[in-house]
């Protein structure tokens, strides 16, 4: 999908709605190391705003990019610290 990031792991939350994309992203990020990039694949259109809000309000993560691709919403979240 994206060639700009070295995606460490992909989280599939397709078919799931609020609050699952955010909650599962948080859990997946917890299992990664600093510098890792998580790709989150969602079908919930609200995840565009929610992942952005979560990443903006949470320490140790950075939202690199969000892509709306047909009916899929793909988010790239980097774990920047602990």
């Amino acid at each position: 999908m994206s060639s700009e990031y070295q995606t460490t792991e992909t989280l599939d939350v397709t078919g799931q709605s609020c609050p699952m994309p955010v909650v599962k992203t948080k859990q997946a990020i917890d299992d990664l190391e600093a510098g890792d990039v998580l790709e989150v694949v969602a079908t919930d259109s609200g995840s565009m705003s929610d992942i952005q809000g979560w990443a903006g309000g949470t320490d140790g993560v950075a939202l690199l990019e969000q892509v709306a691709d047909d009916d899929r919403y793909i988010h790239y979240v980097e774990k920047t610290g602990e």
Binding site: C18, P19, V22, V23, T25, K26, W54, T58, D59
Partner: peptide, 11 residues
């Protein structure tokens, strides 16, 4: 429950 679990994701 939705607000609580999401808030926990914020730490």
């Amino acid at each position: 429950l939705i607000l609580a679990s999401t808030a926990a994701a914020f730490g």
